[in-house]
């Protein structure tokens, strides 16, 4: 993109005043010195030059002030950089069981609910990583797009602070995953993409939805982390159920198997306590700190200050012109009416 194409103004109405910058062509701000005839003044190249410079300075002064008032800026650009950062799509379980403790009880006293622990730890996680783009989605019975992919970490933290509010009923992880994948959008395919699923349980992924999810994963190819907040005593990811090994009997185990079969980098963390969650998040933080190439979106650059600076420079020139202005004669001629009087801009 050329610089010109990225140029924009916030208040274009001001630009209607831009023709006023032609005023200095018609009139000079210098002192008018009446002399009887221009022929009295010898042709002077330096004077002409100074005159031209002062006219231009006047035009620049008015022009840059008008431009400054219109709020000029360069639109943000995308720079390919190598650094530490990723596109993170955060998918948080907000089913009712997240409000229980890791022991499966209602929190009391100093005990922390699973939601409160993930809130505290995710808050720190987002705060530590300055260059990430983060999107937040939540799911319970239905998926909820909370925040689109954004670099405004204040907004992300406001969304994370909401996750220990009372949750809803069920855990419908399939539709949640679909939404979290959609949050990556189509831009910046070379960026490192991370899907971080935080949930305390799983549900059967409908066989009809599985191919669609597989396709989406193959297309977007995120690194998938599952932070499984396991309630103490409940079956883990590796535990085979005593009876039949069906997705209905052991949804967590089968979700893990499904993730493993996706062909994307995948890692599950089973956390049975707040400390374990913290350790898992630190591990993800470390993993995703590998130098990666990503597109940094630079915010738009404000050029107002520059325009004012240029206007001030032009006015400084005009001022200098006024300071050095001098008379053609040492004494001002008496203001006497003359029959035909030509005036000349005195430099």
């Amino acid at each position: 993109m050329t610089v010109l194409a990225r140029f924009g103004v916030t208040a274009p109405a001001w630009l209607w005043l831009l023709p006023l910058a032609l005023l200095p062509l018609a009139a000079s701000a210098q002192r008018r010195v009446p002399i009887p005839s221009l022929a009295m003044v010898p042709a002077d190249g330096l004077s002409r030059l100074v005159d031209a410079v002062l006219t231009l300075a006047g035009m620049a002064g008015i022009g840059f002030l008008v431009i400054a008032l219109s709020g000029p800026h360069l639109a943000g650009e995308s720079l390919a950089r190598t650094g530490e950062g990723a596109q993170i799509s955060l998918l948080v379980d907000r089913s009712g069981s997240m409000n229980e403790t890791f022991a499966g009880r209602q929190p009391s006293g100093a005990e922390e609910s699973k939601a409160a622990a993930s809130r505290r730890i995710l808050d720190g996680f987002v705060g530590r990583r300055a260059h990430d783009l983060v999107a937040v989605s939540a799911f319970s019975t239905s998926p909820m797009a909370v925040l689109p992919m954004t670099d405004r970490h204040d907004a992300v933290r406001a969304a994370i602070r909401a996750i220990d509010r009372p949750g809803l009923e069920a855990t419908n992880v399939a539709r949640g995953l679909g939404l979290a994948l959609a949050q990556f959008g189509t831009g910046a395919p070379q960026a490192s993409r991370v899907l971080l699923l935080v949930s305390d349980g799983a549900a059967v992924i409908d066989r009809r939805v599985q191919p669609t999810l597989r396709e989406d994963f193959a297309k977007i190819r995120p690194t998938l982390y599952w932070l499984f907040l396991r309630t103490a005593g409940s079956p883990g990811l590796a535990d085979r159920p005593a009876g039949e090994d069906t997705p209905q009997a052991a949804p967590e185990r089968h979700l893990d198997l499904f993730f493993k079969s996706l062909g994307v980098p995948y890692r599950a963390f089973e956390a049975e306590s707040a400390q374990a969650v913290e350790a898992a998040i630190r591990e993800i933080d470390r993993q995703e700190r590998k130098p990666i190439s990503y597109a940094e979106r630079r915010p738009q650059r404000d050029l107002t200050g520059l325009a004012y600076g240029l206007a001030a420079l032009a006015m400084g020139l005009l001022l200098a012109g006024t300071l050095i202005e001098t008379d053609l004669a040492t004494r001002r001629p008496a203001s006497r009416p003359a029959a035909s009087r030509e005036t000349r801009r005195a430099a």
Binding site: A145, V146, L147, D154, A155, A158, A159, A162
Partner: peptide
């Protein structure tokens, strides 16, 4: 059901508008 706590309408406008 709270999605996010109040955020600044100018600095975080993009996120708010997108949400």
């Amino acid at each position: 059901f709270l999605l996010f706590e109040p955020i600044e309408t100018c600095a975080d406008f993009g996120a708010l508008d997108g949400a």
